[in-house]
Amino acid sequence: MSDPTPVLDDLRDESEGLDALVAPLEAPAWALPTPAPGWTIAHQIAHLAWTDRQALLAATDPAGFRTEVEKAAAAIATFVDEGAEQGAALPPAELLERWRAGRSALQEALRAQPEGARRPWFGPPMGVASMGSARLMESWAHGEDVADALGVRREPTARLRHVARIAVRARDYAYAVNGLTPPAEEFRVELTAPDGTLWTYGPQDAAQRVTGPALDLCLLATRRRHRDDLALRAEGADAGRWLDIAQAFAGPPGEGRKPGEQGLPAERDKPGQGATA
């Protein structure tokens, strides 16, 4: 993607949609538990604010960001949780303003990057568009956790194309992180977008195929729903296996949710989220 402006616009809109969900909440509601074990709504927003700050550092101070990578490597099991805990301890109004300021600064920094720039991350270096789509994926996924905590359902939008694209491109990574050898051939993936149009990936004549709603693949690959609760269809054993392990974030796959669990444990994204995009 040569021009990152569209994805950055979508990232802005995705964040504003989640902002509109949490901004009216009274302080006690920020302490509601979400599907991520031990994380409240405040933890979810604090995590997004923390990751935005990390991305801003990567974009503006690569040397300083390398120090953060070293810290993460030394405390890999606790690094993400510690960042969320610190932010969640703030008064909700202060946390909300910190998240807003951080994501605004990140938008400004990413839009100012020179063409073709690649910035360090916890995984491989990322271009501006890839970083924007990874931030959108994480914002959407954690927004689902917030929505689950509040008992609401958000209307899917065309912005899901970024999440779906990451999921499809990360197919081989999903196999690798599960200790499996990726299939040699490409899959055909046909997803029905929220507006009824079709998003397609891979050769049209591929023997292994996945079809279904784009929303469902996004929920599956971010570990927000179990495959059994979704309307995805696989043709071919390899395609079926992929639906068992698909993930759009970097790091261990985690347990995910069990069949029928609409608001129970979901895997939190690790610092390298989206690194395979």
Results as ranks from 00 to 15, higher is better:
residue 161 R to P: 01
residue 200 T to Y: 07
residue 177 V to L: 09
residue 203 P to N: 08
residue 103 R to E: 12
residue 160 L to H: 02
residue 106 L to I: 02
residue 140 W to S: 02
residue 75 A to I: 07
residue 99 W to S: 07
residue 75 A to E: 15
residue 131 M to P: 10
residue 183 P to H: 08
residue 170 A to T: 09
residue 147 A to N: 12
residue 108 E to A: 14
residue 146 V to H: 10
residue 98 R to P: 02
residue 121 W to K: 09
residue 104 S to Y: 05
residue 183 P to R: 11
residue 113 Q to C: 06
residue 118 R to Y: 09
residue 76 I to Y: 14
residue 114 P to C: 11
residue 101 A to W: 07
residue 156 P to N: 01
residue 165 R to A: 15
residue 91 P to F: 04
residue 104 S to C: 08
residue 116 G to A: 08
residue 136 L to Y: 00
residue 153 R to P: 09
residue 125 P to D: 14
residue 139 S to R: 12
residue 131 M to Q: 15
residue 92 P to N: 08
residue 161 R to T: 05
residue 170 A to Y: 02
residue 102 G to C: 07
residue 166 I to L: 13
residue 202 G to P: 05
residue 74 A to G: 15
residue 146 V to I: 15
residue 195 D to K: 08
residue 145 D to V: 09
residue 64 G to Q: 01
residue 158 A to Q: 13
residue 122 F to N: 06
residue 187 F to N: 01
residue 127 G to D: 04
residue 169 R to H: 14
residue 190 E to N: 04
residue 87 G to L: 03
residue 133 S to M: 12
residue 109 A to K: 09
residue 196 G to A: 02
residue 92 P to Q: 03
residue 166 I to S: 06
residue 62 P to I: 08
residue 199 W to N: 09
residue 130 S to R: 12
residue 139 S to F: 04
residue 123 G to N: 06
residue 167 A to C: 05
residue 199 W to Y: 11
residue 94 E to Q: 15
residue 65 F to T: 00
residue 199 W to S: 13
residue 61 D to H: 03
residue 140 W to Y: 05
residue 67 T to C: 02
residue 62 P to L: 11
residue 152 V to N: 06
residue 70 E to I: 10
residue 118 R to F: 09
residue 188 R to M: 06
residue 105 A to K: 12
residue 82 E to C: 01
residue 95 L to M: 07
residue 153 R to S: 15
residue 178 N to G: 08
residue 88 A to Q: 06
residue 120 P to G: 03
residue 155 E to H: 08
residue 67 T to W: 01
residue 197 T to W: 04
residue 63 A to H: 07
residue 181 T to R: 14
residue 96 L to G: 07
residue 189 V to W: 00
residue 107 Q to G: 15
residue 75 A to L: 13
residue 96 L to C: 04
residue 91 P to Y: 04
residue 73 A to G: 13
residue 65 F to H: 03
residue 123 G to E: 04
residue 150 L to W: 07
residue 125 P to I: 09
residue 146 V to G: 11
residue 161 R to L: 11
residue 172 D to A: 11
residue 141 A to N: 05
residue 117 A to P: 06
residue 147 A to I: 12
residue 156 P to S: 01
residue 122 F to M: 10
residue 130 S to W: 06
residue 108 E to M: 07
residue 111 R to C: 10
residue 80 V to I: 14
residue 126 M to D: 00
residue 111 R to W: 04
residue 173 Y to H: 11
residue 154 R to S: 04
residue 68 E to N: 13
residue 61 D to M: 02
residue 155 E to R: 14
residue 131 M to D: 10
residue 79 F to T: 09
residue 99 W to M: 07
residue 106 L to S: 05
residue 183 P to M: 12
residue 119 R to T: 14
residue 136 L to Q: 01
residue 156 P to I: 00
residue 112 A to L: 06
residue 188 R to Y: 05
residue 100 R to W: 05
residue 196 G to M: 02
residue 187 F to W: 03
residue 188 R to I: 03
residue 78 T to N: 13
residue 99 W to Y: 14
residue 102 G to E: 09
residue 69 V to K: 11
residue 150 L to D: 11
residue 111 R to A: 15
residue 64 G to C: 00
